[in-house]
Design a protein around this nucleic acid. Structure first.
Lengths: 169, 169
DNA sequence: AGAAAACATATGACTTGTCACGCATTTCCA
DNA sequence: TGGAAATGCGTGACAAGTCATATGTTTTCT
């Protein structure tokens, strides 16, 4: 019986090592760790959520813009912003005004309160980016980014492209 | 007025290009794309959820194991499995039995039904891994994995390590 | 000018992921 | 051996992400 359970432990270990080499299974964990670290830093730096931080950062760096612009910069779904922004407006971090020349769009602008929240938080987040740069050389970052580019390209391809053994006639 | 809005468009473009180089902002998008592709493939291949697929795959490859083992292999929180497994049991994909020698543990084992679901789905998921291998050389994959290793190591470090300018006395 | 298509946003429903806490069991050690 | 610590699991609460669909605007095309 001992032997059987040892064999089992060995199989589990091998499986773990194998999955360590599987990109698809590494990505969620890496992302989760990144998000968690950001959440903790933000919590400590003043209590912004990840979404709030992203919005304030973009608005501070690039000025007022529409929800669509924000979503595009952040590579995320606009619905996430649609939902988060009203709360940020209530907190007086941003204003939302319908664009007078295009009535579909909402222009989001940072307020003084929002800017102060940004300025409180930014130094902490900069420390994190600095720490990353201390860990990875510019070349390594470039390699990483270019691998991510190609991976994303692959991931966004229509799934039929690799499901079909032979092209449809 | 035209000029002002053009300057604004330029600022937004610059911001987008800058954030393209930011690892922390690329990771969520890459992960999201990966999950979405997996969801679509699984949907087409028979309707398993990502979690279900992972569980069936691990159990098929490495035999019965505890919830903790599964969580470790999948690099995820045990609560996710705690929640998903009862439904999988109801679908007859797995059995859950309390370990007789350690009453805290639950041993999860795949059933014939689960194995059939796995076998229906596996070829599709293999095509995906094959397609990835057609896109990235083994060396590139190895580089990618090793960068992820180092990134994860960085991300799991206690946040104080880079928040402190000077060590606490 | 009017119909159709494209676009920007809002919203409901769902999945994946985390934490914190509680309970039961096991292990460790004084 | 008995109590403290560690471990395994379940659960409530929440964040972040997606989709599909609805609604109102603008653009495009005839």
């Amino acid at each position: 019986m001992k032997q059987a359970s040892e064999r089992q432990a060995e199989r589990i270990k091998q499986r773990r090592e194998r999955q360590e080499q599987n990109l698809f299974s590494r990505l969620p964990a890496a992302y989760a760790a990144s998000r968690l670290q950001a959440q903790r830093l933000l919590q400590r730096a003043g209590g912004l959520s990840v979404l709030e931080w992203r919005v304030l950062w973009d608005l501070c760096e690039a000025g007022p813009m529409t929800i669509r612009d924000l979503a595009e910069i952040q590579r995320t779904d606009h619905s996430q912003l649609s939902r988060a922004l009203p709360a940020m407006q209530r907190k007086q971090f941003v204003t939302m005004t319908r664009d007078s020349s295009d009535g579909r769009q909402i222009v989001v602008e940072i307020t003084d309160t929002g800017r102060r929240a940004y300025e409180t938080t930014a130094p902490t987040m900069k420390l994190r980016r600095d720490a990353l740069r201390a860990e990875f050389s510019p070349e390594e970052i470039a390699t990483f980014i270019s691998l991510l580019d190609r991976l994303e390209d692959f991931l966004r391809r229509p799934i039929d492209t690799f499901l079909e053994r032979e092209p449809p006639e």
